[in-house]
Write a protein that binds this DNA or RNA. Structure first.
Lengths: 323, 323
DNA sequence: GTGAAAGCGCTAACAC
DNA sequence: GTGTTAGCGCTTTCAC
């Protein structure tokens, strides 16, 4: 009995006699044999790992996503290695560039923040890659995300449909790396246009990130205006929660005085006071699709075409924008 | 020039001539040489990875912790592999038992939920291990966590000090795997004793997990009592948030009608309405210490003694239990 | 300080 | 179907 046969048995190749298989298995049991993953990795030139690289792991959206990715990867026998970039372009680049860690993972699911399209293109072409969020594919990787413009248009239209006439937007990022934010702003504008209403430019506020504090500060600025808004479209649920915090602490009511809608559909928004309306992307779909495409890319002998995958989304109306 | 010399240079061993080092480095540049991590791993018998295994990754407490662990590990040149067990005993056991994945990580930081002390003892003794949460060390691993009894006593005492006389506790788990919960219940009782007050046994409510829905349901039960509580000690901030959600939706006020205090100090509690008082464990300390001890355990030739490490904690009083 | 050569433990051609 | 053997690309003991 040789190592070849053992390898066959351990890896479950069909071509083994039942008797041999049994003999091997008993020996494995008795000797307490454990295959050495490290050796296998080297021999195969694969690590059996995929990396999930996101800007922030304590953002509920990403931790909920991480969970789904983990589940999908596990089902396929892969382990998940993670890293947080804090949106640092250098850190982000290091992950997709040629580097010594290249072999540590067979592929990457990557949610870039500080990297513009150009930097994305300049990467290790042999690294299977799936991009999350808002970056259009250049054909060498897959991209999965929801239709931000349409979703934002719907959210804004919902607010306008409530009869609100001074609708604010919190989260714009008018610079190269703010593509996702800009798409939402575009949707915000389109909704106004469709109803023949003008956008109040002073009500479009930028934020460096999409956090609670960002939302809280931005809302404070809006309330300090001579004519504050009567509704707010926030580019994340955290921003919405922060904004609501400010509104309430100033003695105003949500939604009576100011209606609020967020983005991401994190669980927190379903239990907050008030509960917050939101754009709900299908995270399970996003995670499952991202993993599926990545594994295909990893195992396929010839690189599959880079796809634009549109995840489903829907509007969830809760107390913060109830009639 | 041999591979030996190159290895020396790449790994930064001191014993190389400046001239040789330069020659090697230029060659490395020109050839675009990248060391193969997989081969190195095999040769060294190490993966340069540590695993973080927690019950739930979408729990803010764990995602905040994960973030700190990541930072500490990265500083030491380690990558972090993660897994979520959902508290499933079988899944948890698989991670610390002898197994083929053993070599995939050099050590594990583990927050068990479904595993009792006995099951913990029966593990791969060669696996460096640091336990988080409430499990006392048997001397073969380190344990880091806050003093749950003391912290719970302080939280409860704070509520009693407010003059509340019917203080409830949400989160008890009176079974083998509920050690952490039981310690909190003990602190809850001790606080009453210290003030010579009786615990209202009907106000001590169990929950399967420490989630928002758990808190919401438990609170509903408490409010259905003939004599509802006038204060609640919740075993997690999520439970507190869920409880507050229920209280508010019944038209009662926090803290006027019912004061609430939580546990974990997640960011969400600082922005919710009302903001929630909480027991704040020093997560940064916990993560840094856990990683430090784990790496020591990994690199030390002789196994270090298993330590009980007590992380600092403090009470943060916010609106939910303001006077 | 540098070179040669022997593993690390597995997988996968290649023969039988 | 089973055995033999040559790598995978490093690290490291051992001479020089």
């Amino acid at each position: 009995m040789s190592s070849r046969t053992v390898s066959n048995v351990v890896n479950g190749y069909a071509k083994v006699t039942d008797r041999t298989r049994e003999r091997v298995q008993r020996a494995v049991e008795e000797l307490g044999y454990r295959p050495n993953v490290l050796a296998r990795n080297l021999a195969q030139g694969k690590s059996g790992q995929i990396a999930l690289v996101v800007p922030y792991l304590d953002t509920p959206y990403f931790s909920e996503l991480l969970q789904s990715v983990l589940r999908a990867a596990r089902a396929a026998g892969y382990t998940v290695l993670i890293d947080q970039t804090d949106g640092d372009p250098e850190h982000e680049r290091a992950f997709i560039a040629h580097g010594s860690r290249r072999l540590l993972f067979d592929g990457v699911i990557f949610s870039p923040l500080g990297l513009d399209q150009m930097a994305l293109a300049d990467r290790d072409p042999s690294l299977p890659l799936v991009i999350l969020g808002e970056r259009s594919s250049d054909g060498t990787f897959d991209h999965v995300g929801i239709d931000d413009v349409a979703a934002s248009r719907q959210a804004t239209d919902h607010l306008l449909g409530l009869g609100r006439r001074r609708v604010a937007a919190i989260g714009d990022q008018p610079y190269a790396t703010g593509e996702a934010a800009q798409l939402r702003t575009r949707g915000f504008r389109e909704a106004h246009e469709a109803r023949g209403q003008a956008v109040h430019e002073d009500l479009v506020i930028g934020t460096p990130r999409f956090n609670r504090p960002d939302g809280a500060h931005a809302m404070a600025r809006l309330l300090d205006l001579e004519e504050p808004p009567d509704a707010v479209f926030c580019y994340s649920d955290l921003v919405a929660l922060g904004a609501i915090h400010t509104i309430v602490s100033r003695g105003l009511r949500v939604p009576e005085d100011i209606a609020v809608i967020g983005y991401d559909d994190i669980e927190e928004g379903a239990f907050s006071n008030p509960t917050v309306s939101t754009v709900s992307p299908d995270k399970e779909w996003i995670a499952a699709t991202a993993v599926e495409r990545l594994l295909l890319r990893i195992t396929s002998p010839t690189p599959p075409p880079g796809l634009e995958l549109r995840a489903p989304h829907r509007l969830i109306i809760r107390e913060s924008s109830a009639r």
